[in-house]
Write a protein that binds this DNA or RNA. Structure first.
Lengths: 335, 335
DNA sequence: TTGTAGGCGTTATCAG
DNA sequence: CTGATAACGCCTACAA
């Protein structure tokens, strides 16, 4: 908080060291052999308290050293896990992370993508949740590299890391059947979202294959929150169809379901076996601990960062699509 | 991902519009009346696809439009709540958020503060967790404004928003006594951290005032994680002192305690009343729901952002210290 | 090996 | 009101 004594520039250093600014620049970037100059420059840097301006460097190099990350809601445990994986990977590569939490508003997302043009970041990692046409459009004509986490609805060519959530939901459903449940309910998320469309498919497929699908057991939450999961489950209970298993398409929704069941006097897993998805921290800390499908959030985050880093080094390579396999992590709620 | 057709600059626009670059700049910044020029410039912007370079703007204006946020662990629900409050406040002021999750490593924090000199952000909001001398030092001579969330150990002059966690712990303890507990255990965090030092004080003060302090009931977790809380509580149980109340100095620690108690066959709140701190989302979703002390994380985040924004507008005003009052939010775990 | 000068893309000052 | 020009701070041909 000491005040703006106008930060010293390379000129001050050059004056203090008695050499030209180019020599200072070279000395600082290791382009000089002359030990005398190197010493004098470093002394001058010390005495002046000089720090190179990243802005000026960026203007010249046309690189900012920053990557934007756009997620719907940083509070969503699944995204949180990704952020925690992405940040260290970027830092290791000398990149900063600019965080955008868009509240799932498509307009905000498009905003982020369109502002990419002004060059405040070298790239964008985005987890789009609603397959909006103009978003896809904006992504496809972005001036900077983009890595998409999740499936790319438009089928456009872009680096991406998929999570195979349809398969994940299928695994979860099969797991419940395995444990003995036959009447399995689903708490879905908003129908206009990617997971809200993909995950029920896996659920339905497995149940139909086992001839126990009943669409009366499907209820939709209007957001990916605990409260929405709670309310949806209450509606399901009111409707009165019996069930002995329940799949929440995210851990948060499943937790909401857990509370609703508990309030209705249904025990978990005694009366109802419960499974969530994302395998986030809340699955471990819930009581009972929550069986959940690991969709590889951490792995996907890490891979996304790596795709981005490698893309920055070579912009010509063709887009790569990676996929991470899901796996059920069994805990108390489904035993 | 369309390729780098060299983004158009103001020169391209000026050429396309048939006016000088100064006129373009003025037209874009609303410094021009002439409707003809305005129209031609906007058409040229459309046709060229021009977007101003923020980097170049920053170089001129000496402002980046970015604020750094340094927290120990974005996965910690208390910090998460802050981030969720800070981000929209900054965005509303046209500022981006650069996130640093330092893993509680003091070196990383100091790094962040020292790199401030290169001007990649206009300011820093930091939640220091360990009162390190050289960190304080670095903060006090920062070239850009800093807002500290939490207490400022060195007593240095800097904008800050405190959370009064000692008082919060006192409230929590008093609440347990109120509900009828007398033998109250404490799961503390690491002793070299600010909360690990402040919160036990409030606990001890209230217990001594009620003549039921017993340091045999205090156990220290070696991190602010669920697992650490679990392990610490197991140690407490092994040691064998009886208790009918337990305060975890964060919700995560309290959740760890909840699981340890449950595994030991102690019911909550039947055998042990349980209280956490931070009033984070996990407190609402826990089973039983967790009584917790709200230390105003959201409010503090919002205030910190506001302090920063007002500081950027007027660097001369003297540092302000705000405090947010804690409040117990009672839920099932202590009834 | 060292220094001089131009340019990265903007905005602001100052003539015309 | 418009347009040429000089910064902002850095790096790097190129010239000495």
């Amino acid at each position: 908080m000491t005040d703006q004594a106008q930060r010293p520039t390379i000129h001050e250093v050059s004056r203090a060291a008695g050499v030209s600014i180019s020599s200072v620049s070279r000395a600082l970037n290791g382009q000089t052999r002359n030990p005398d100059i190197i010493r004098r420059v470093h002394e001058a840097v010390q005495s002046t308290g000089y720090v190179p301006s990243t802005i000026a460097q960026s203007l010249r190099s046309q690189r900012v050293g920053q990557i934007a990350l756009a997620v719907e809601d940083i509070g969503n445990p699944a995204y949180l896990a990704m952020v925690r994986a992405i940040q260290p990977a970027l830092r290791a590569a000398g990149l900063r992370l600019v965080l955008h939490s868009t509240d799932g508003i498509v307009g905000e997302e498009i905003d982020v993508v369109q502002n990419l043009g002004n060059g405040y970041v070298d790239g964008l990692i985005i987890c789009p949740i609603r397959p909006d046409a103009s978003l896809i459009e904006a992504i496809s004509r972005s001036p900077v590299p983009i890595v998409v986490i999740g499936s790319v609805p438009g089928g456009i060519a872009v680096d991406n890391v998929r999570g195979q959530s349809t398969e994940g939901a299928a695994l979860a459903t099969a797991h419940l059947i395995d444990r003995g449940s036959r009447r399995i309910a689903l708490i879905n998320g908003p129908g206009d979202t990617v997971p809200g469309q993909a995950r029920p498919k896996g659920y339905e497929r497995v149940l139909r294959a086992n001839e126990c699908y009943d669409d009366n057991l499907v209820e939709q939450a209007d957001a990916f929150t605990f409260e929405a999961g709670y309310e949806a489950t209450k509606r399901l209970l009111v409707r009165g169809g019996e069930f002995d298993g329940l799949l929440g398409i995210t851990d948060r929704l499943a937790l909401g379901a857990l509370h609703a069941l508990r309030n209705a006097g249904r025990s978990v897993p005694g009366d109802v076996r419960l499974v969530g998805m994302d395998n986030s921290e809340v699955a471990t800390t819930a009581v009972p601990t929550l069986t959940s499908v690991d969709l590889g959030a951490v792995e996907r985050g890490r891979l996304a960062a790596e795709l981005m880093i490698s893309r920055l080094e070579n912009r010509e390579q063709s887009p790569r699509a990676l996929a991470v396999a899901p796996a059920v992590v069994e805990r108390e709620s489904s035993r």
